[in-house]
Design a protein around this nucleic acid. Structure first.
Length: 331
DNA sequence: CTGCGTGTCCCTGGACTGGA
DNA sequence: TCCAGTCCAGGGACACGCAG
């Protein structure tokens, strides 16, 4: 591996001069600088970031801790963050390890900016909290959990599902079913029913715990009801639930939206392709979410955040596509 | 065998030197 | 005096040698 030493030797200068030349620092004449840059290219020099971090005690890298991450949202969010961080001169590193291990590993690599994804109410281990106390950089918690001495960006899941119910109510739906696993989203659904005075049927709510699968029998019973007794629309609380829902209703040759309208939580591009028609979705805008995170962590607004922890919620937005019809237009 | 001291790795940045 | 370049300390982890 070529080091700054090799370039210095080849250029006939000291390593400090090479360092200045390659970092565009003043104090090196242009002729020497271009000679050094040419040699660095020729010798395929790649800066040793471990050594840089050793000196600076910081890195332009954002660590992401997302234990047990899976699914499309994770993939889109990471892609968006990586792209936008790159535009700001930052790189990203992801750890899927246990949070206490991940925080320690990032510290060992002098990574001093962390994003910690954690679902609301997820218990945090004592060893994680101890590692968090020792961590000297800034941490941003996303996903709903709350942590002392850390920035927080929350997602208004309850408000998102409320918006979905509102949209369906405005289209004239009175009998809406909810399928999902998230308490907060179910609470948003119930709030919507109350607010818009929609009919409540306990069997219209299929709420099942993670990580079990959608109870097929319950869904089949629901869609098998007489037309006047069954729901006219479904609110699905994640793209994971949608895929399970899709698998079951396709077997029954159910047509969306001719027989049932559907609104799904998770604003990801795949929602345009799961069914024959693009799905109406509700959820946080991924680009907005990553931009807000980078504003906090890359210090683009240093005065705004100095000395205090940011605590904000990102609103969800409804993207109207083609999966909702008025009930009277159903077949 | 254990514990301690020293050198090495790679790079930066401040202090310093030499020549014009 | 100023500019271009050099010298050197220092950072954490680890390997190595030496003394007890």
């Amino acid at each position: 591996m070529t080091t700054i030493k090799d370039i210095a030797k080849a250029a006939g200068v000291t390593i400090a001069t090479v360092s200045r030349a390659l970092n565009n620092e003043p104090g090196v004449n242009e002729l020497t600088r271009s000679k050094i840059v040419a040699l660095a290219n020729e010798l395929n020099y790649i800066p040793n970031f471990a050594a840089k971090r050793l000196v600076n005690k910081r890195s332009n890298c954002i660590g992401i801790i997302w234990h047990g991450a899976r699914g499309l949202f994770f993939s889109h969010w990471c892609n968006s963050l990586q792209k936008r961080a790159d535009q700001r001169g930052f790189s990203t590193m992801i750890s899927l390890a246990h949070p206490d291990k991940a925080i320690r590993q990032f510290s060992e690599h002098f990574i001093d900016r962390l994003i910690f994804w954690s679902s609301p109410g997820l218990p945090l281990s004592l060893s994680f909290l101890q590692q968090k106390e020792k961590f000297a950089g800034s941490m941003l918690v996303m996903g709903g959990n709350v942590l002392e001495n850390a920035h927080r960006i929350g997602i208004d899941r309850k408000g998102a599902i409320f918006k979905a119910v509102q949209h369906l109510a405005e289209f004239g739906h009175r009998s809406i079913a909810f399928i999902g696993q998230d308490e907060e989203k179910l609470s948003g659904f119930m709030h919507g029913l109350l607010e818009f005075q929609l009919s409540y049927h306990p069997d219209f709510i299929i709420h099942y715990p993670r990580p079990s699968s959608l109870p097929e029998a319950k869904l089949l019973a629901l869609i098998g009801k007489k037309p006047q007794e069954r729901p006219t629309a479904f609110v699905l609380d994640s793209h994971g639930v949608l895929f399970e829902f899709n698998k079951i209703v396709r077997k029954q040759q159910v047509r969306i939206p001719e027989q049932f309208s559907v609104v799904v939580y998770d604003s990801i591009p795949e929602m345009e392709q799961v069914f024959d028609i693009p799905l109406t979705t509700v959820g946080p805008n991924i680009e907005q979410l990553t931009e807000a995170a980078l504003d906090i962590l890359t210090g683009d607004q240093p005065d705004a955040f100095q000395g205090r922890w940011v605590d904000m919620n990102v609103e969800s937005e409804l993207t109207v596509r083609e999966s909702v019809l008025r009930p009277e237009n159903r077949s």
